[in-house]
């Protein structure tokens, strides 16, 4: 790998700060849901696992990333900004009228977004379709889909998991961002879908369970997944919602912190906290 873990960690810090700045500027959004996904998204975009061309976003041979948990799109915008799709400053128009930085991914308005998501449960099916399409076109490309763990409540995820077990696309990887929370509480209390890896394994998937907020773990898991070519691969990425600024959220008395931005004052503290750690 050309990029070191230390360099990726520095990139992850940048992404976290972008996420906080853009959601605070927007006055709404899902920063905590975005923060849990940062190490995996950093590894994908900057760790050499995805081939893409920011200047040619529809390049036929590109790999594709589908953010099925679309509410975490600030993390994706942050990565795309760092990758050169647009400027970081542009992302500060998040959720504003006329901005292409919509509250959930909209592929029609933003080249480089591979699926319009926001209605949970559909991304894995879309990714399966894309993986099959790449296979038909004899492309050596891969699809990465990121779901939430709360999202696994949706039955369609399991329809897709079963179908992928049938067609065995070796170019499909799902990353379950298991941050442990969904809108109204902990996933274990709302609807406990565990054991998750066992469920995917039962449908014929290769599975791994890793600490998804450890940059080295994220890279290792993606290295293993991308070297498997005979069946779909699943990474249970065990993360923490709001990772990177957890002590601040704890002080706020809300470790879920679902669907709300940090106040300007808290955002300032959070950015200082990220810089100092």
């Amino acid at each position: 790998m050309a990029v070191s873990i230390e360099e990726l960690k520095a990139k992850a810090k940048q992404l976290r700060k972008h996420i906080i700045r853009m959601t605070t500027a927007a006055g709404s959004g899902h920063p905590s849901s975005s923060l849990s996904a940062v190490e995996m998204i950093t590894a994908l975009y900057f760790g050499g696992f995805m081939k893409y061309r920011p200047q040619e976003p529809h390049w036929a041979a590109r790999d594709r990333f589908i953010l099925s948990k679309g509410h975490a799109v600030p993390a994706l915008y942050a990565a795309m900004a760092e990758a050169g799709y647009f400027t970081v400053e542009a992302t500060l128009s998040l959720r504003k009228l006329g901005s292409v930085f919509e509250g959930h991914p909209n592929m029609l308005r933003m080249p480089g977004i591979e699926a319009s998501t926001g209605s949970l449960g559909q991304g894995l099916s879309l990714g399966l379709g894309q993986a099959l399409g790449m296979h038909l076109d004899k492309l050596d490309s891969r699809v990465f889909v990121m779901t939430g763990d709360g999202e696994l409540d949706e039955g369609q995820v399991w329809e897709a998991a079963a179908a992928a077990g049938k067609f065995k696309p070796g170019n499909l990887t799902v990353i379950v961002d298991q941050n442990g929370y969904q809108q109204t509480g902990a996933t274990k209390d709302v609807l406990d879908m565990r054991p998750i890896a066992d469920k995917f394994a039962a449908f014929g998937w290769h599975t791994q369970t890793v600490n998804g907020n450890c940059q080295a773990n994220a890279v290792a898991a993606l290295t293993i997944a991308t070297n498997i070519k005979d069946r779909p691969t699943c990474i249970i990425s065990q993360t923490q919602k709001g990772f990177g600024i957890l002590p601040l959220l704890e002080a706020e008395g809300d470790l879920n912190y679902h669907g709300k931005p940090l106040s300007p004052a808290l955002a300032e503290k959070a950015i200082a906290f990220i810089d100092s750690n």
Binding site: M107, E114, A115, G121, Q122, S125, L126, G127, L128, G129, Q130, A131, L132, G133, M134, L136, D137, G155, Q156, E159, A160, A162, A163, K166, F167
Partner: peptide, 28 residues
């Protein structure tokens, strides 16, 4: 047969899989 995919009795998945194929340039 190489262009045909029976996903089982799962209409939701069928439609989204078709959309995924379409986003790769197929007429699904």
């Amino acid at each position: 047969p190489e262009r045909s995919f029976n996903v089982g009795i799962a209409e939701s998945n069928m439609v989204s899989v078709a959309a995924g194929l379409a986003s790769c340039g197929k007429t699904a």
